[in-house]
């Protein structure tokens, strides 16, 4: 499957990346996150317990299943208002 993966705020800064296309087979967002955590150094930021995520621009849990063409986003706790 092909995914459009986006990073926001403190994660975007730590990774030096606002998004990327990722190809592979991932049953869930948690599986995608595990793959990203295998990358070195700065990627450990995604191991944070308070991480939030969205699939196709809707908040979801890390257990959310993934499908070809999905847009996935990882971000820290939101702080608007």
């Amino acid at each position: 499957m092909k995914l459009d993966v986006q990073y926001f705020a403190r994660y975007r800064e730590a990774l030096g990346l606002d998004g990327e296309r990722i190809e592979g087979e991932f049953v869930s967002i948690a599986a995608l996150r595990e793959r990203l955590l295998q990358r070195d150094g700065v990627w450990a930021v995604l191991a944070e317990q308070n991480i939030m995520c969205a699939r196709n621009q809707e908040l979801c849990s890390l257990d959310e299943p993934l499908f070809d063409g999905d847009e996935v986003a990882f971000f820290p706790t939101v702080t608007g208002g």
Binding site: L59, A73, P76, G80
Partner: peptide, 26 residues
């Protein structure tokens, strides 16, 4: 609406403080 906005809407504040920039934590 404010309680839900604060915890579910994707906004992030980065402050410019006297000791440099910092991301506001939830």
């Amino acid at each position: 609406v404010m309680d839900y906005l604060k915890t579910r809407a994707p906004f992030w504040k980065k402050e410019h403080t006297s000791e440099g920039p910092r991301w506001v934590e939830g």
